[in-house]
């Protein structure tokens, strides 16, 4: 299990680096998906099988699909790739990455000096029941807040995607045909 954990972690690191350095957005997304799958394996190795599967279902399987969906529409060509490449000059990334490096050092120092206990990577399983108990026990407030947030996004999506039956919108007022929008897939 330890070997699996570190291998998946290494894959996650490498692929995430490629996400940033890849000039072609779709390739970058492919790397991002791989990185998420590697993260899921790490979760599994740590015993959180439920979180691992949810990582795949929700992030890799649903949210990234929407990313890909949008990027697909961008009509990418060689020109875009060239422009992306021009943005990857050291002059542009040196500063931010130095700052991020400082943050990384600070975090490592906090982790090491804080004496964080490293539990063994055994793959001992945390069952779905325990996850549920935790979510609706100690963390119930967070769950409810997240539910509020999701409800708000749902309302917004329904508002944006609604028909305008009584000529409320400008297009309808001008007598143009308002096509019905049934794509509510984004509201998830």
């Amino acid at each position: 299990m330890e070997f699996t954990f570190f291998l998946a972690g290494l894959i996650a690191l490498v692929t995430t680096a490629r996400v940033i350095t890849c000039a072609n957005p779709v390739h970058a997304l492919l790397y991002l998906i791989t990185s998420m799958l590697a993260l899921a394996i790490d979760f599994y190795a740590l015993g959180a099988a439920f979180a691992a599967v949810l990582e795949v279902v929700v992030y890799a399987g649903a949210i990234m699909v929407l990313f890909v969906f949008v990027v697909m529409m961008l009509n990418l060509n060689a020109e875009t790739v060239a422009r992306e490449k021009s943005w990857l000059r050291p002059k542009l990334w040196a500063g931010p990455s130095a700052a991020a490096g400082v943050l990384l050092l600070a975090m490592l120092w906090a982790l090491i000096s804080g004496g964080a206990e490293m539990g063994g990577i055994t793959g001992a399983e945390l069952s779905a029941r325990e996850v549920g108990m935790n979510l609706f026990g100690p963390y119930v407030l967070v769950v409810e807040l997240a539910a509020f947030l999701l409800l708000a996004t749902l309302v917004v999506a329904a508002h944006i995607g609604r028909d305008e039956p009584n000529g409320v919108s400008d297009a309808a007022a001008r007598g143009e045909r308002v096509t019905s929008n049934v794509q509510v897939g984004e509201s998830r």
């Binding site: 099988a49 439920f50 691992a52 599967v53 949810l54 279902v57 890799a60 399987g61 649903a62 399983e125």
Partner: peptide
Amino acid sequence: NVGVLFLLAMSS
């Protein structure tokens, strides 16, 4: 133990 979810993950 999360077989059903694994299936959903693979299909997604």
